[in-house]
Simulated scan of single mutants.
Amino acid sequence: MKVALLLLATAFAAVSADKEPWCRCAAFITYEYSEIMVYEAPEIAIESCIDDENQCKKACANELNGASNDGDLWMMTDHGVTVGQDICSYLASRFIFWINNKKVYGYYEVCGGAWQWSGVESMQELCCDGGQQEHCVSKKHPRSLLRN
């Protein structure tokens, strides 16, 4: 039994060693117990799964900041809609129609490891109503507005 496990572990290590290193980069909105991916950038080439974590992080931050003018959800894209509307449309295509007051955060992943924050955060909060981006409104109770 031990020999079989050793052979299996050796085979797995050999197959894993042949894989090329890679870096994933994506944007997420965060809930208390979950994350929802709202955008995935093209894969980023790196030299090593062990030595190039900082290269992955920097390239991911550059990609996300470049695609959104440093996190501006109201920036117009080349295809005539805002970054936030792109996200709302993407979410609506996955049956998520309403998002209220959520920041969008950039994360990177090296060679299948854990997702890590890239330091990128949207300037504004994201709000989607029926799949359409809207300006977010503070959720103060109407009576509290009268007291101010």
Rank of each mutant, 00 (worst) to 15 (best):
18 D>A: 08
143 R>Q: 09
106 G>S: 04
7 L>M: 13
64 L>F: 03
11 A>L: 15
90 Y>L: 06
49 C>D: 00
17 A>P: 00
21 P>F: 05
15 V>G: 00
32 E>V: 08
51 D>M: 11
83 V>Q: 07
97 F>I: 00
109 E>F: 00
6 L>F: 15
80 G>E: 14
99 I>A: 04
63 E>H: 11
52 D>G: 05
31 Y>W: 12
51 D>N: 15
125 E>C: 00
56 C>P: 10
133 Q>M: 13
32 E>T: 10
107 Y>H: 12
38 V>T: 11
47 E>A: 10
16 S>P: 00
39 Y>G: 02
130 G>V: 08
116 Q>A: 07
121 E>D: 01
8 L>N: 03
72 D>I: 03
106 G>E: 04
133 Q>A: 06
125 E>H: 04
131 G>H: 06
54 N>W: 04
85 Q>Y: 04
99 I>D: 01
74 W>C: 01
118 S>D: 09
114 A>E: 13
33 Y>D: 10
133 Q>D: 01
142 P>Y: 12
8 L>K: 08
71 G>R: 09
114 A>C: 03
82 T>D: 01
56 C>L: 08
49 C>K: 13
58 K>F: 05
81 V>Y: 07
65 N>M: 11
101 N>D: 13
110 V>D: 06
15 V>K: 14
25 C>Y: 08
145 L>G: 01
12 F>T: 13
36 I>G: 00
117 W>I: 01
72 D>N: 15
64 L>S: 05
94 R>F: 01
52 D>S: 14
42 P>Q: 12
45 A>C: 02
67 A>G: 02
42 P>C: 01
93 S>Q: 15
31 Y>T: 02
54 N>Q: 12
35 E>W: 09
44 I>G: 07
136 C>R: 06
25 C>Q: 11
1 M>E: 10
74 W>Y: 15
12 F>N: 08
77 T>H: 03
49 C>M: 11
28 F>M: 06
43 E>N: 05
26 A>Y: 14
55 Q>H: 12
97 F>D: 05
43 E>D: 06
143 R>T: 07
26 A>F: 14
93 S>E: 14
86 D>L: 07
42 P>N: 14
95 F>P: 00
93 S>H: 13
14 A>T: 08
35 E>F: 13
23 C>R: 14
80 G>R: 12
115 W>H: 11
79 H>W: 13
75 M>V: 06
49 C>S: 05
88 C>H: 14
48 S>Q: 10
91 L>D: 03
37 M>W: 01
135 H>K: 11
64 L>G: 03
99 I>M: 05
148 N>E: 12
2 K>T: 06
31 Y>K: 11
18 D>E: 11
100 N>H: 07
2 K>Q: 10
112 G>S: 05
84 G>H: 07
80 G>H: 14
104 V>E: 04
2 K>S: 07
112 G>P: 07
36 I>R: 15
33 Y>S: 15
109 E>T: 02
35 E>H: 10
45 A>K: 15
1 M>T: 10
7 L>T: 09
19 K>L: 13
123 M>Y: 03
105 Y>G: 00
114 A>M: 06
60 C>M: 10
90 Y>K: 09
113 G>E: 10
94 R>H: 15
67 A>E: 07
18 D>P: 00
62 N>V: 12
16 S>M: 13
38 V>Q: 08
129 D>Q: 11
83 V>G: 04
135 H>T: 01
137 V>F: 02
38 V>A: 05
103 K>E: 03
90 Y>T: 06
42 P>L: 03
35 E>I: 08
29 I>Q: 08
9 A>D: 01
140 K>I: 08
